[in-house]
Design a protein around this nucleic acid. Structure first.
Lengths: 112, 112
DNA sequence: AATTTGCACAACCGAATGGTTGTGTTTATA
DNA sequence: TATAAACACAACCATTCGGTTGTGCAAATT
């Protein structure tokens, strides 16, 4: 239960995914994100805090307002994890194929 | 808040990611998953329920035991979403590049 | 100077989460 | 047959989550 708040958690919430989608089209200030979101400014601010804490967005003060910018390269962690899992997954089938091939032409220990 | 329990949520929890990792090496029964997990059988069963409900794993009865198998193609949804977001994100820079290029050699409206 | 706007901070709330314990039932195994 | 293992189902618990309301302050706007 220790040290929550990772990228996986960040994109788990649909509202946060919506925010990321909006920001992937370009930087916005909070007001623009709140627009049509159906959520309070404070609610959005909370989500931005989460996203900021795990590096998916960056917040920069600009006069009175605060600009939010996406840092989508942080999502690599997610893609990497999925790909790593799938690599293992596919190896299973390759092994199975190899096994089937080996049993087919019985005693064939060459690499093929 | 309606209809939770999607793939994003499924992989948000570290314990569930651990389960997926284990299963990506091959099907296991619950007992094997519980091993060294530090979590109760019932706890694991709950996680498996979640994973099953969003199609990341499949549960099949085999005699008294229950075998769990990963269905990692379901994770496409996650990768697709990330890629789609990043595509938009990159378009921003392409547009910026184009803008800079266009302003450089002033009135050049050809597609390049 | 008065008002509005944007934000930070905190309290609060209901619902969901992650996990446990407990009870009962079926299915193997000694 | 007695016992143990695997499961289902439910109750329970503390914590977290997503979101709102409220208060106060600093910065623009009028």
């Amino acid at each position: 239960m220790i040290e929550r708040r990772d990228v996986f958690q960040a994109i788990a919430d649909p509202t946060r995914r919506m925010i990321i989608q909006k920001l992937s089209r370009g930087p916005l200030n909070i007001g623009q994100i709140v627009e049509d979101s159906g959520i309070t400014r404070q609610g959005i601010a909370k989500h931005l805090k989460v996203l900021n804490e795990c590096g998916v967005i960056s917040l920069t003060q600009k006069g009175r307002e605060q600009f939010c910018e996406a840092r989508l390269d942080q999502l690599d962690e997610v893609v990497d994890w999925v790909n790593a899992s799938r690599r293992l997954w596919n190896q299973r089938f390759e092994k199975l194929d190899k096994f089937l091939a080996d049993t087919k032409n019985n005693n064939n220990e060459t690499t093929r």
